[in-house]
Design a protein around this nucleic acid. Sequence first.
DNA 1: GGAAATATATGAT
DNA 2: ATCATATATTTCC
Length: 116
Amino acid sequence: MKKSKIDREIVYSLLRQIPRGKVTTYKILANHLHTKAYRAIGQILKKNPHAPLVPCHRVVKSDGSIGGYSGEMTGRAITKKRYLLKAEGIFFSGNKVRDFKEVLFLFSSFLILFLG
DNA sequence: GGAAATATATGAT
DNA sequence: ATCATATATTTCC
């Protein structure tokens, strides 16, 4: 196995900080990791070593559309993702999050320094 | 170690 | 809004 270039721990740590009812995006995560590997974030989540400790369902695309879940871009997994978010008070109008910017969680600089 | 695959982003049309 | 291209990283073999 080749060496990991992204600090997965940080990804998971960041995700754990997201409170209920908030979401983040692959882009934001990648940015905080100082990388442009947006897609890689998804693959890391797909693997999801730390199971439900990390709320992977709170990660959506940068344009507010839902993205994927459990290795699927469409299908029952996505339905479940929408359901989970709905349970947290995040609703979807069409394929995009309603009030996207409002429910977007901003990571604090302190947190970033602490993790980095 | 190399090739294929990807839960994306961005720019052009 | 839609299509094509770019890019970095992961995972599988």
